[in-house]
Design a binder for these strands. Structure first.
Lengths: 160, 160
DNA sequence: ATAACGTGGATAATGATTATCCGTTTTAAG
DNA sequence: CTTAAAACGGATAATCATTATCCACGTTAT
């Protein structure tokens, strides 16, 4: 049981896109290079973010990706959901139904309620932070120089 | 990101063992049959429960498994931990460290704190219920007959 | 027209989870 | 003291989800 690495990657991709000036765009290949991710595979993840209305894609030469929403409106939870899908962490295999020989309608599992509560509780925390708050955290005094270098890199790679 | 089915199986295995009279024991093969689980593989899971001090094993003919602790002292969380191990749901791949070109000591990730909090929150819910409370839930009026049949089965399969 | 980009589908490689096999040890019973 | 049934441990295979690659296609600035 482990979160996909795609969630972490996507999150940082969005932090990168958040550094872009208005109307500018960053090509997918540049993003995946910066993340150290497989370029072709990361395109698929970017696609998921597009269909989740988190980012916009611009095709054609001078194309790329940019945020579609304001960074303070993109919750960590939204990114998780876009990348991992909405399947729950736990789903019953109907063991109790078999053990007690219940009817199929009586889908009954001693764990489902508890697990759903646990998951809600987990998700609630993911809803607390946004791309805006993460970006802010990164741009604090501590990493001033490093972030400046990253901005420099963005200026080189961004389009229009 | 999905919980192993072994967790659900183990949980019900413990509910079964909780139905045993004192000092009696249930062979691993009977347990896995009742659960509809692969017998040989489920032995491995039972082993994890043994090393986690949740159940005791008795080798030799007339051997099998029984609870080691009182059912009210076995939390759902304990079972989860025994089966899945203590690795956390999220672990950083150091993407930010690479992006900002930080020193290795400066292991820094914008998500780690949040994710750890979320996980704690998730685990807290799993600590609320125990094998005792699950068993109780199962043995309510609703499934009276069905549970009686299960007890019958246990009487047949248990040893000593 | 062309070159650089995103899209979509098919398909492989990888890795974790689940499953099987076999030999060993333990113990009750004949 | 032999045998049968059980847990144990290691090696290994099968299965499945995740990650990765490839290629043909649509889009758009130059």
């Amino acid at each position: 049981m482990h979160m996909k690495t795609g969630v972490e990657q996507s999150m940082y991709a969005l932090v990168l896109l958040n550094m872009l000036p208005d109307k500018a765009v960053l090509p997918g290949e540049a993003i995946s290079q910066q993340l150290g991710a497989s370029a072709t595979y990361f395109q698929k993840l970017l696609r998921k973010l597009v269909t989740a209305d988190i980012i916009t894609s611009v095709p054609g030469i001078k194309g790329g990706f940019r945020l579609k929403k304001k960074p303070e409106d993109i919750r960590v939870y939204d990114v998780y959901l876009a990348v991992e899908g909405q399947q729950s962490l736990y789903s019953s295999h109907g063991i109790l139904v078999d053990m007690l020989d219940l009817e199929k309608e009586e889908s009954c599992c001693l764990l489902t309620n508890l697990m759903e509560e646990a998951e809600s509780s987990w998700k609630a925390v993911l809803k607390r932070e946004t791309i805006a708050s993460l970006s802010e955290e990164m741009c604090g005094e501590r990493f001033k120089d490093k972030v400046a270098a990253l901005e420099e890199w963005i200026n080189n790679k961004m389009v229009v």
